[in-house]
Design a protein around this nucleic acid. Sequence first.
DNA 1: TTCCATACTTACCTTTCCGTGCGTACTTAC
DNA 2: GTAAGTACGCACGGAAAGGTAAGTATGGAA
Lengths: 137, 137
Amino acid sequence: MENRDNGPPAGLSDKLNGELLSADCPSRGVLKHVTSQWGVLVLIALQGGTHRFSELRRRIGGVSERMLAQTLQVLEADGFVARRAYPVVPPHVEYSLTPLGEEVAEKVRVLADWIEVNFHRLPASRRAAQRPARVPV
Amino acid sequence: MENRDNGPPAGLSDKLNGELLSADCPSRGVLKHVTSQWGVLVLIALQGGTHRFSELRRRIGGVSERMLAQTLQVLEADGFVARRAYPVVPPHVEYSLTPLGEEVAEKVRVLADWIEVNFHRLPASRRAAQRPARVPV
DNA sequence: TTCCATACTTACCTTTCCGTGCGTACTTAC
DNA sequence: GTAAGTACGCACGGAAAGGTAAGTATGGAA
């Protein structure tokens, strides 16, 4: 038995697989940040361009100030979010995606869009089906 | 403003954004399951084909029995994982991805692969700051 | 007879997550 | 003068995540 019997579709080598699946893979930390509950939404919300703090907070429904600030800091430390603060009297800070951030955000968005589009095919939509007028044939 | 909420799901654009970013979007639950720490790794590990429980456990480094069982149950309830149990004397259960599961897993894998490939481009401060902080009591 | 392997489940406990409320330094609006 | 907005930081407490260990049923190996 040498190589695999039914390998993954295409693209990246199986070597990468072994890395991520190993417990000490350093990428896991970044992956956790990116796939965190608010991390996903921040990346998607920032894809539209530059936004201010409270603007983002209104944009992302349900996020608290604490979580938004924390998520932005983590994503900034990872190099995905750029923070620009102006030393003016009412605080003015602008957040945007770095080139790296744009790349991950695109991947994240593809995943999120798939879930939104295919949500009606999932059994979860039956369990929590409380929607008034959204029933396709 | 465009107002098409019953159109074909062919092209997804900014309309979808508003749904996911709103607090009561039902897709958020599924998104959370898929992007959960172990959910991501289970989906990737199952992309190779069918695997048994302890086989998955050895494959995914660092996962506990409890978390693996729980994650598999959630993913099965969402319709991403298929579970087939044989009524034999030593329990024999096989896990695989459903067609839906294969689709998400691919999206998840693209994201995970990007992070692994581009990890070296990320700021070094992040890499060094990964340590289990132990606070003395 | 005891141990092990399988695929979990349950109980117990620690750790992390996350919302709420408060404070800041300053300005505009009422 | 009071309220609101801005962009957070800090402390508290409840909720959730997650690890460890033990139990369950059964047959085969030692």
